[in-house]
Amino acid sequence: MITNPRIKPPIVTDELNTQEVHAFPVWEVFTKKKETDAHTHAGSLSAPNAQMAANFAREHYGQDQVCCSMWIGLRDDFKSTDACEDTYELFVQWNAGDRHVHVGQANASSREDAETKCKTEFVGDKEFYTIWSLPHQAMHAIDGDEDMIWRTTDQSYRLAKGYSKIVRQKWDAIRASKEVDDYQKEDLKDTF
């Protein structure tokens, strides 16, 4: 018999003796919708390692909209103050509440140095809210060209707009089956 967990939760024995897993580290995920777009912060997730973070990011943030490339970085690597000579990926949040957008790269000796260079090279006199930077070597990338993210089979059911088309078709069908006068009589006209 199938035990439906919503009606009858599976019986868990020995639950209190299960070894507790420490909270997984948090990863920041950036997605790119099409080639001409910049990578934009999509959100974060927790995962035990980079490989699982990439697997989760692919399903979590790669499937809710068209996506051709993803970047993933450990949150701690965005905050690290250790000196690290590298090419840094630079992300600017222009206004509070905006998503961080990739603006470019800079060779720098530390995160602080990278953010200073970001201000001079990419921000200038413009107003901005915050800057994030990540050493390139700490970044994990999934390139949709070589490693598919967005699927080729029909995925429209995953998107909210996938439903709106069907709903519209239904209303069109209902409207076509009734006289316009009927609608006016029922005072439903405004609904459409």
């Binding site: 997984f24 997730l45 927790s46 995962a47 699982m52 697997n55 989760f56 692919r58 399903e59 979590h60 499937q63 699927r151 089979t153 029909d154 995925q155 059911y157 995953r158």
Partner: peptide
């Protein structure tokens, strides 16, 4: 067991049904 697995496993189940 964890939120990310919940989302990812559901997404893979959708793929199976799409196939």
């Amino acid at each position: 067991p964890i939120l990310e697995a919940d989302i990812a496993f559901s997404s893979l189940a959708q793929d199976d049904i799409a196939h």
